[in-house]
Design a protein around this nucleic acid. Structure first.
Lengths: 334, 334
DNA sequence: GTACGATAGTCATACGTATGACTATCGTCG
DNA sequence: CGACGATAGTCATACGTATGACTATCGTAC
């Protein structure tokens, strides 16, 4: 009596036998290439039996034969941050639309060693600039698109228009009368944050900067330092919404009203910013992932991908509200 | 002149040739099984040349040969929610420790159709209870562990001690003098939320309930309804931190002080709760993912997995602060 | 009637690995 | 000295797919 193992899934050979044709024919029909090699009658018969048997091609066999996996790896420091999760969503959607799947590889920021992820099983990589330093250890060149990274760095990139965002942001603050601006900077030495610092310093002559790890508590401490200065800034520009939350708490702890005594802005527009009604810069993270995936598909098809620069939108909320500033903190400015 | 294609990665055959042995020997040495079939001398020679050539086994060939992929799929409604991202982290860590990789499949809540993810390429699944309804469409039985789902539902589960958490939560609120409690419930019909409602109603006789989709704005509206009742609750228990944020905003909008006029609690303890200083129930999401992955490994090895129930911890913060309640809202209760 | 091009398929093989079946060599024991 | 068990390998094959090389059939044109 045969053991009742779950029946093995049908192979193309099973379909061939059931349809009365050869395995090659099944393969040719289902691949869709080979325009005139199979008659319409036979093709239909094959498709019907494949459907009836519930045939699905074995991915391992296909990968082996074709020498590719249709799998892309996304390398990010963490997937827990909503920003990177959104990047994932955008990239995964485009990947799925093109028959690719996307795996996440989290490469913590505190690991500076060379990359040693599963390189062999993938056709290409999307890598956050925050993982850039680790990419040196690649054993063989893998098609690569960098996210929010130095456009002159060699690999194709997809970027945000940080300068435009910073222009809108500073003009907004200037219009509210802010002149002394503090910069609560992320203490990670990657391109995107360097870019934010440069863009801010280019527009605000006397910016004062404190650096902090991206967390509420570290942002809190750095903001306390900024807000305790004799020449206390009237606005804090934070590199990240999480830091802005810390800054908000710091202001409260020091008895300062937001936005009356100090305006606060974040970056990214994750749900935290909505919850605390923070003015922030909305970075279209899903678009970043989607565009990067499209660029990678270009690369895999031998085309040269574009290097898009995605617009970032200033989202004005209560933490820089002018009315609050005027009614709470000072007389009308003019 | 040969085109300068990137050199193909070395195969076990290349290693065999370089070491002067057969391909079988290479395979036997590197697999580590086959204790006495190869002499120590030869084995070392094979390992050395493999190292020298930078040989890595081709995963597709291995998968084809062994009929498995060492890939697990995690099915969740969204990876953007920090809770599920943490589940992913925990599961991925355990998976990596055992040589498995983890892919994410997001199965949106609004899709009630049968599951049609890439079933063939995986050895097993972890599925959130929020995707449970979709699992009927599986073509062939796949080893499965359910997350935070009905323990009597057939598949192995990993759960939180919701009843214990609700006991701690209600006792905390009772101790603060709260008697009329509103329940801001998630309007998703899955086990975990049914469980929360049941646990709450078992302990609080006259709970009033409003349901809302899990978002700040929907939570806001439902909370407004709750707080506008003639018999306005003095405490709102929310099924989710996101809902609690909406409730917080609703209280503000109605001119109610938190926690003076109304106490608010959330669920999950994501960063939102920290940012708004919400009392909440900390669900160990990473542990959930890790334990589920361990259970799935048991299942794959023919063992019967345990059905752990993970403790949930009450995290008391400002939104139920007793001192604020006493000083702001009312006279001392006794 | 045969040569030929098109049509409609089949055949054989390769991808790289893992493993059951087989073999050669050697030391030892009866 | 022949048999035999252990040791140390090799050989051959299968996994399921895709595809270049090959073949059979037929209608048509010379």
């Amino acid at each position: 009596m045969p053991a009742d193992t779950p029946p093995a899934p049908p192979t193309s050979k099973d379909v061939a036998a059931a349809a009365g044709v050869s395995q090659s024919t099944v393969s040719m029909v289902l691949s869709g290439k080979w325009p005139g090699r199979v008659s319409a009658r036979t093709a239909q018969k094959v498709r019907d039996t494949a459907e009836r048997l519930g045939y699905r091609p074995n991915p391992a066999a296909r990968n082996l034969r074709l020498g590719r996996t249709r799998t892309i790896m996304l390398v990010v420091p963490t997937i827990t941050a909503p920003f990177f999760a959104s990047v994932y969503i955008g990239a995964a959607r485009v990947a799925a639309e093109h028959g690719f799947s996307l795996v996440v590889f989290t490469w913590p920021l505190d690991l500076d060693g060379p990359f040693d992820g599963p390189q062999e099983a993938i056709d290409g990589m999307l890598a956050s600039s925050m993982a850039e330093a680790s990419l040196s250890g690649m054993r063989r060149p893998v098609p690569l698109v960098m996210l929010d990274s130095d456009p002159d760095g060699g690999a194709p990139t997809v970027n945000f228009d940080i300068e435009g965002a910073m222009r809108d942001l500073t003009e907004h603050l200037f219009a509210l009368g802010h002149r002394r601006i503090g910069h609560l900077a992320a203490d990670i030495d990657v391109w995107t944050f360097q870019c934010r610092a440069a863009a801010l310093e280019a527009r605000v002559p006397d910016v004062v900067t404190e650096r902090a790890a991206i967390s509420i508590t570290d942002g809190f401490e750095a903001a306390v330092r900024l807000l305790s200065r004799p020449d206390r800034p009237t606005a804090l520009v934070c590199d990240d919404d999480t830091l802005a939350v810390g800054a908000h708490k710091a202001a409260q702890a020091l008895g300062l009203d937001v936005p009356g005594d100090v305006a606060i802005t974040g970056f990214d527009d994750v749900i935290l910013a909505e919850a605390l009604e923070l003015t922030t810069v909305r970075l279209p993270a899903e678009q970043l992932g989607a565009q990067a995936m499209l660029g990678l598909l270009d690369l895999l098809n031998g085309r040269t991908p574009p290097r898009p620069v995605l617009p970032a939108e200033l989202v004005i909320r209560r933490s820089t509200s002018p009315s609050a500033a005027l009614t709470t903190a000072a007389e009308p400015a003019d």
